[in-house]
């Protein structure tokens, strides 16, 4: 019999990963927004994500709501610890979220909402990266509450992970645009994607090298058997994916760079999971400790097992409906 709390840790991890790769590419489109040459390119970029962005962002609500439901202690410790990055991320998401509709409703203020779309996307991505870095570094708690200071989240390492996420999302965004467009915009993004991939790989390498030194547990896990096997396997998998990415880009493939970039994110996510396990909040709050009582886990699980596959099905359908290249002259605005 499986522990329910571990099943739930898996589900939450799945929700967070889904959020990262889905909202990752649409935040990335926002990050690349200033690189559009004219109104036509801007409209194409925005229309490529307009029908799907709020579905993507719903996974973030599920991550927050799910954590509250099944790991209330983790939620109660992490939120105050990451107070400022979370609030800034939320405010940034407000700016970029409303820009989708607002920019079409005004002429004079259009540049304002374009900046809001770009700035909101960058800040949201950066804050998510900072939150990740702060989490990897570890969050202190005592008596079921956060016990650290107000600026603990800010460090060289968390700034590094923040930048890494901004660049990584931009990579996802550029490959999404490659997938969804053709002509000049696509060629331009192919050019960006190459350098963004190089930078992303650089950040992955740097963060991977620094992570084991954030906590002795990580060091021990990655440099002793059986973990050290993974220390060989994971970088190899990253290299294979990188090869798939660059060869796809070179061969002018539409979809291959996008999916290779997604796999890169999945690999990083698995790497983080290996570092964290069996903690949900490093360095000491375990999955089991943080879990809600059995009756809560079970009640929520019943619905999740039924509803998540349905959600995945109709989300996939929505993507299918809006498949293919974006027609710059289409859109509802």
């Amino acid at each position: 019999m499986f522990e329910l709390s571990f099943i739930w840790a898996g589900i939450i991890a799945f929700a967070v990963l889904t959020y990262v790769i889905l909202d990752g590419f649409d935040l990335g489109v926002g990050i690349l927004f200033p690189f559009a040459d004219d109104e036509r390119e801007k409209a194409t970029m925005m229309n490529s994500i307009a029908p799907i962005w709020d579905g993507n962002e719903t996974w973030l609500v599920l991550g927050g709501g799910g954590l509250f439901a099944v790991f209330p202690l983790a939620y109660a410790v992490v939120m105050p610890a990451l107070y400022m990055p979370i609030i800034l991320m939320l405010l940034a998401l407000i700016f970029r979220g409303v820009a989708f509709e607002y920019r079409w409703r005004t002429k004079r203020w259009k540049p304002v909402w374009d900046v809001a779309f770009f700035g909101g996307s960058v800040v949201a991505a950066f804050m998510q990266g900072i939150a990740l870095g702060a989490l990897v570094q570890g969050i202190e708690y005592k008596d079921r509450a956060y016990a650290g200071g107000w600026w603990d989240w800010l460090s060289g390492f968390s700034v590094l992970t923040g930048l890494a996420v901004v660049i990584g999302y931009a990579l996802l965004g550029s490959t999404w645009i490659i997938l969804k467009t053709e002509g000049g915009l696509q060629r331009k993004m192919q050019g960006y994607a190459r350098w963004l991939a190089v930078a992303t790989l650089g950040f992955i390498g740097l963060a991977s090298l620094l992570t084991p030194f954030q906590d002795p547990i990580y060091f021990h896990r990655w440099f002793n058997l059986p973990g050290s096997i993974l220390s060989v396997l994971m970088p190899s998998a990253v290299l294979v994916t990188a090869w798939a990415f660059f060869s796809g880009l070179k061969a002018d493939k539409d979809a291959q760079p996008f999916f290779a970039a997604l796999v890169l994110f999945v690999l990083c996510f698995i790497g983080i999971g290996i570092s964290f396990y069996p903690n949900i909040v490093p360095p000491s709050l375990t999955i089991k400790e943080a879990a809600a009582p059995e009756s809560s886990l079970l009640f929520a699980l019943v619905g999740t097992v039924v509803l998540v596959p349905m959600i995945l099905a109709y989300t996939a359908y929505a993507y299918w409906v809006f498949r293919g290249k974006i027609d710059p002259d289409e859109g509802y605005h």
Binding site: A69, A76, A300, L307, V308
Partner: peptide
């Protein structure tokens, strides 16, 4: 959140999911 999460959390999760 820590105290009411076990009761209210699943209801909110259902709101998100459904």
């Amino acid at each position: 959140s820590d105290k009411t999460g076990p009761v209210l959390g699943p209801l909110m999760a259902y709101e998100v999911l459904s």
